Computed example of a mutant assay.
Amino acid sequence: MDLFGETNNWVSNLNPILTKYKDRRHPLEYKNLYQLMVMVVLSAQDSDANINSIAPALFSKYPNLESLAISNNEALFPYISKVTNFGTKANWLLEIAKILQKDDNIPLNMSSLIALKGIGRKSANVILRESNIPAKGIIADLHVIRVAPRIGIIPEIQDGNKTKKQLMQVLPKVIWGEIGMAISFLGREICRPNPNCNDCPITTSCKYYNQK
């Protein structure tokens, strides 16, 4: 089997997971764009499950950007203290809220999103993807970093930006919007550190499975 996408038709090979996970919502349990943006900022170096657990109390206290914009660290800390690096993230959120002021002002383009503190290209792509805006890149979270090389799409790289760039070189733009989250969901549910290959829909084109 030819590896690393040189001659493989990865659109065809990955179609089973594109179909399986098409339009699947992100695991962050948000109810609107404001909540999604806040939760994406908080989720850096933390688990979606942890962010989901603190979200109800946080958004009960701060239901919109207007309420967050008039808050401060001392008031916000108790609601996000279980989040990794919560002090820095509080500063980011308060600055974003003071800049945007209202939920209607949340931008939905890459350049404006990454201009906000705490929102990099990966986070911006999550926000755009969940808002049905065409992708400007491929989402490469920890699951994608682990699973994409295992499948054989790219060589193993322990770096999100390099993984994203490699994937963008190999995969056509037409699938960028969904393939990152499709691989991520595969990694969350099936292709875990101890993979359950019997349930995987792409074993015929998987490097790991075919080299076992």
Rank of each mutant, 00 (worst) to 15 (best):
L93Q: 07
K22P: 05
R24Y: 14
F86E: 03
I54P: 09
L36F: 03
V38Q: 11
N91H: 12
K89A: 10
F77L: 05
I51S: 03
S53E: 04
L36A: 07
N105T: 08
E95I: 10
D48G: 15
A55P: 12
N109P: 04
E74L: 03
H26A: 12
S71E: 04
P63R: 00
K89H: 07
A124P: 07
K82N: 06
L113A: 05
D46F: 08
T19R: 00
D48Q: 14
A57K: 15
N52A: 08
I54T: 09
E74Q: 04
D48C: 14
A97P: 15
L93N: 05
E29L: 15
P107S: 08
G120W: 04
K22F: 12
H26E: 11
R129M: 15
G118T: 03
P63A: 01
I80A: 10
V83I: 06
I106T: 08
T88E: 08
L28C: 07
I54V: 14
A75Q: 09
S67V: 10
L68C: 12
L18G: 02
A55C: 09
V40D: 00
K122W: 07
E29W: 13
A44R: 06
D104Q: 09
H26L: 14
M110F: 06
N73D: 14
L58I: 07
K102R: 13
I51L: 04
N50E: 02
R121Y: 11
V38L: 13
Y30N: 13
E66V: 14
N105I: 04
I114P: 04
T19L: 01
A90N: 04
I96K: 14
D104H: 01
K122T: 04
L58S: 07
I80S: 11
R121N: 11
S71Q: 03
I99W: 14
L100A: 06
A49H: 12
N72Y: 00
L42M: 01
L108V: 06
V41M: 05
K82I: 00
N52Y: 13
S111P: 00
A69W: 12
Y30M: 12
S43T: 13
S71A: 12
L68Y: 09
E95M: 12
M37F: 10
P16L: 02
V40S: 02
S112C: 03
S43I: 09
N91F: 10
K61C: 07
S81H: 14
K98R: 15
L128S: 05
Q45M: 10
P56W: 10
D46T: 14
L93S: 08
L93Y: 09
L33I: 07
S47E: 01
A75P: 00
I70C: 07
N73M: 08
A57D: 13
G87A: 10
N91D: 15
L108I: 03
A44C: 00
A44E: 01
I17H: 00
